[in-house]
Amino acid sequence: MSEGSDAYDASRIQVLEGREAVRKRPGMYVGATGERGLRQLVFEAADRAVNEVLAGRASRVDVTLMPDGGVCVTDDGPGVPIDQAEGGGPALEALLTRMGFGSGAGGRHDVTLGFCGVGPIVVNALSSRLTAEVQRDGVRWVQEYVRGVAVTPLTEAGPATGTGTTLTFWPDAGIFTTSEFSFGALADRFRELAFLNRDLEISLTDRRCPPESVSVRFRSPNGARDFVAFLDGRTASPGDPGIIGFEWEDPQMAGAVEVALRWRDTDEERVQGFANSRPTDGGTHERGFRDGVAAAVNTYARKRRLLAVTEPDLDADRIGVGLTAVVSVKLDAPEFHGAMRGVLGNAAVRACVDQGVRDHLGTWLEGHPERAAAVIDRIVHGAHRH
């Protein structure tokens, strides 16, 4: 290779940081520049607020789609600190301009809503305008940004009427190919989060077509049981006899498990897995669940002589016919595989979920002999006899 203008040295390596990196490669941070990317902006903005509720510092999150194309995300927590952050500048400004600042401690109690969990800096960088408002210690503070850069200092704007943080942003039309958010897709994810986190209350309001507005509120005191009922298209009551549910902690996998399931008169299997409230496309928790259900069902069927001695064990495919289930694990140190980090890989989780499901479902079968016999009969003979 000839020397001179074609030489490859350090001067040819471009280093981008913060907002510049996000604006140069938006797909790396929100996945796409179409509607899916817009949706991820909302999730990144809501991420911190949701975790404030789960940490017990706030009671609710409200998300509003506004008539002018903006999105407002509000929580009633103590408000983002406005004092000086490490490295200089107010903590609020650091949250909106520095990578990784304000990220949670991680582990089972944190939820990641966004594409990669970077947080508000992504929202700020990819918005043509953003307004941050903090109510804290009796004072209301406001700061304005344009394309990720502060255009006003953090300013006192009068007395506070409560506490909390509000981020209002307008996605940059120069980056995104659409300005239309999918209300339904946003509602689906927020509903899912409420099912998986009983302490969470979150509302979504659509004011884009005044004077009409649509608002939904999600809260799920019955957790995964409500989720199974929703998937089956019906409303569950706390004592719904058709849904089997249990939860437990397991130190061997450094986490907790919540499972709910029900067999229906259909040939369809519908098992949904989640790890730290992230939807999964398989993994050790789902394999452990199937192993545990098969073991519990076969053990009970053999003990009660509901299977002929000469018949083989019921396999997972037969047991899964008509099964609706939600399998949610929350781990201190989750390990995800795959390009989209959608497959849980923690090795210990499979054996722990297997044993837990085996024990809890086995106990339920023993305690409900009539219903257990109906479940086994349905599995043995199939949902429909052709």
Results as ranks from 00 to 15, higher is better:
275 A>T: 11
185 A>W: 07
231 L>K: 13
192 E>L: 10
276 N>R: 00
271 V>R: 05
211 P>G: 00
207 R>D: 03
240 D>H: 11
199 D>Y: 10
288 G>Q: 09
184 G>E: 15
185 A>I: 06
215 S>T: 11
246 F>A: 00
197 N>Q: 09
264 R>H: 09
201 E>A: 11
235 T>F: 13
183 F>H: 11
178 T>K: 04
183 F>W: 07
274 F>A: 01
242 G>T: 13
171 P>M: 04
171 P>R: 08
265 D>E: 13
257 V>Q: 07
171 P>Y: 02
265 D>P: 07
262 R>I: 06
279 P>I: 09
225 R>G: 05
190 F>A: 06
172 D>N: 07
248 W>P: 03
285 H>V: 05
272 Q>A: 08
236 A>V: 10
235 T>I: 14
189 R>A: 09
207 R>I: 00
253 M>N: 12
292 G>W: 00
193 L>T: 06
206 D>N: 08
253 M>P: 12
238 P>V: 10
290 R>Q: 12
173 A>N: 04
282 G>Q: 02
282 G>C: 04
228 V>N: 07
259 V>T: 12
213 S>M: 09
268 E>R: 10
272 Q>R: 11
240 D>I: 09
193 L>Y: 02
177 T>A: 10
205 T>G: 05
218 F>L: 00
287 R>V: 01
229 A>Y: 13
200 L>P: 09
281 D>C: 08
181 F>H: 15
268 E>H: 09
205 T>I: 03
183 F>T: 06
213 S>C: 02
243 I>P: 12
186 L>F: 04
281 D>A: 11
235 T>Q: 15
224 A>D: 07
247 E>S: 15
189 R>M: 09
194 A>E: 07
265 D>A: 13
259 V>K: 13
279 P>G: 01
273 G>Q: 01
189 R>V: 12
252 Q>T: 14
291 D>T: 04
246 F>R: 14
171 P>L: 01
203 S>Y: 04
218 F>W: 03
277 S>H: 07
169 F>H: 06
198 R>P: 11
216 V>T: 08
239 G>L: 12
208 R>G: 09
266 T>G: 11
250 D>N: 15
278 R>S: 02
169 F>N: 07
217 R>E: 02
276 N>T: 04
271 V>L: 09
260 A>M: 04
198 R>Y: 05
243 I>R: 03
245 G>F: 02
175 I>V: 15
278 R>A: 00
238 P>S: 08
206 D>G: 06
183 F>V: 01
203 S>W: 06
199 D>G: 14
260 A>P: 07
212 E>K: 05
251 P>L: 03
259 V>R: 13
184 G>S: 14
182 S>N: 05
235 T>H: 13
202 I>E: 00
189 R>T: 12
264 R>W: 03
192 E>A: 11
262 R>S: 15
281 D>L: 01
218 F>M: 01
246 F>P: 04
260 A>G: 14
290 R>V: 08
265 D>C: 02
287 R>I: 00
224 A>W: 08
253 M>K: 12
283 G>S: 03
268 E>P: 00
269 E>D: 03
265 D>R: 14
276 N>C: 08
264 R>P: 03
256 A>V: 02
190 F>K: 10
259 V>L: 11
238 P>D: 12
